[in-house]
Amino acid sequence: MRLAPYLFLLPFIVLFIVFLVLPIVTAVWMSLFSVQRDGLGLGGSANELAFVWFDNYIRAFQNAGFIESFGRVLLFGIVQVPVMMVLAILLALLFDSAVVRMKPFFQLSVFLPYAVPSVVAALVWGFLYQPRVSPIVEGLRDLGIPVDFLAPGTVLWSIANVSIWTVTGVNVIIIFAALQTVPRDMYEAARLDGAGEFRTALQIKLPMVMPAVMLTILFSIIGTLQLFNEPMTMRSITSNITGDYTPNMAIFQATTLGGNINLGSAMAIILGLVTFALSILLSLVQNRRKGATA
């Protein structure tokens, strides 16, 4: 009986070690090495794995494309995350109110884009962005509004639109599920005090589900830093998306296309540390807010 809990935990522990701990340890270890090539390539050359300490990290920070990709996803997140969260909160509050009819249908409609793979979503939206085949572009052009969704200054926001369309639904479900746990007695007390739907939503519902909101914000920040599928898919239809457009794309370019797994490992560790630091920062802000409220 004493071993029973550990036996139940064993499958998770094994999978956790094999698919999370070991890859991280391997990436850290590989980032400290580099392939040294000797000879002139006339048959006598040899490739040796040499311990180079933090040279790969220095090379990663000297890689202008890799550093610029962080600034690009930071700008992406500053715009995309707030817009997506506002939409998710508004839709969740609407579904929890008495205003919306046919709630199951609209809930399914909002959640359905999340069931579409991000690659497929990027392909569909890429078709809608192309000037010569898109009905949206042609319709706006007929109205005298020339637009180019794939231009250098707009392609980032076109990717943001795909991301918002894809993941807003799951955030709505998380916040809406949190709203269902709020005691209905609080709503009745608010109505007796003369509070309307708007005031109840702003002063009671939203503060009560703030932990769920912070959780979705954390997931959104992590997803922003891991942005890969949408720009990688849309790269085939526009030359304004470079191979190192995002940090994950820069890592992919260094390892798969460049064949330098050691440099790619260092880049991956840097990306992981940045993600970890932002997660800790958000947790500290949330804890400080809880302390101030208390």
Rank of each mutant, 00 (worst) to 15 (best):
P211M: 09
A212Q: 01
V213T: 01
V213N: 03
M214T: 12
M214A: 14
L215D: 04
T216P: 04
T216F: 07
I217R: 05
I217N: 05
L218S: 13
F219I: 03
S220Y: 06
S220K: 09
S220L: 10
I221L: 13
I221C: 07
I222Q: 08
I222C: 05
G223F: 08
T224H: 05
L225H: 02
L225I: 06
L225V: 02
L225Q: 01
Q226F: 03
Q226Y: 01
Q226N: 15
L227H: 06
F228I: 10
N229E: 15
N229W: 07
E230N: 05
P231V: 08
T233P: 03
T233D: 09
T233I: 12
R235M: 14
R235L: 11
S236Y: 15
I237V: 15
T238E: 05
I241H: 07
D244F: 02
D244Q: 13
Y245T: 06
P247L: 05
N248M: 15
A250Q: 04
A250K: 03
A250S: 11
I251T: 02
I251M: 03
F252N: 12
F252H: 14
Q253M: 08
T255R: 07
T255G: 13
T255A: 13
T255V: 06
T256W: 13
L257Q: 14
G258Y: 12
G258C: 12
G259D: 13
G259I: 09
G259V: 09
G259A: 11
L263K: 05
G264C: 08
G264H: 06
G264D: 06
A266M: 08
M267D: 02
M267Y: 03
A268P: 00
A268W: 01
I269D: 07
I269C: 11
I270K: 02
L271M: 14
L271G: 02
G272E: 03
L273F: 12
V274T: 11
V274L: 12
T275G: 04
T275S: 06
T275N: 01
A277R: 10
L278W: 08
L278I: 14
L278T: 15
S279G: 13
S279M: 11
I280K: 13
L281V: 11
L281R: 06
S283C: 00
S283E: 05
S283P: 00
L284A: 10
Q286D: 10
N287S: 15
N287A: 15
N287K: 15
